[in-house]
Design a protein around this nucleic acid. Structure first.
Lengths: 104, 104
DNA sequence: ATTACGATATCGCATTTCGATATTATAAAT
DNA sequence: ATTTATAATATCGAAATGCGATATCGTAAT
């Protein structure tokens, strides 16, 4: 599968992952990107950070800066609106799963 | 959930749906769009048709025109390469599902 | 002061997405 | 035979998104 289509198919998956993880615990860009790579997803910072910004602007995430041994990290947590969006996404993900894997 | 984010999250889901359905039987644009609407996905023709074209160009789909009572329909079927991409996507969808719904 | 460095932010270009509009092909009507 | 109607596909221009590369930030150590 070529990279071009990987992105096409999976960027949405990645966005759901963001909300899901940000609900469990605050996440920040660099570590989250590495987490994604461990799961086989490639995303550049030029894509990831603007997604964070957009999700924060849309009030799906909220951020808080922390100084970790002299380096600034921006931790994102999910908002109530984000939780609602995540639940809607989970519903759709479940439907997709059922359809893809139903016996036929 | 606002439309803007619906699209962000679900356009990839839609692309997986396309491959999945095109594997089961040949699909064509207008009917497939209505099928998607029944499942709660909104996509315009200005988005859908170029996706078909791109998937065909990338050899994930192949098309055949048919005359149905005077109207031309372009039926798309999946290719071998498309099947491989679909299987990869199903794997990822399963992983996403497992992560979203795992007990914690 | 300067350097080092983890981390975030932004740039310019290419591609994608969108609603709206145009085009195509044929059957039915005249 | 020409016109009209219509299902369906194709394409347009503008806006948004995605990308790799590069720049910037903030602080601690030197």
């Amino acid at each position: 599968m070529q990279d071009q289509f990987k992105r096409d198919f999976f960027l949405g998956f990645i966005k759901v992952h963001i909300l899901h993880h940000a609900r469990i615990e605050p996440i920040y860009g660099k570590e989250f990107r590495q987490e994604l790579r461990r799961h086989g997803y490639e995303i550049s910072y030029g894509t990831l950070y603007p997604i964070f910004h957009k999700l924060e602007k849309g009030d799906y995430l909220t951020s808080e800066q922390k100084n970790v041994s002299g380096k600034i990290r921006k931790y994102y947590s999910i908002t109530k609106k984000g939780v609602r969006a995540l639940e809607a996404a989970k519903l759709k993900a479940r439907e997709l799963f059922n359809e893809l894997f139903e016996e036929s």
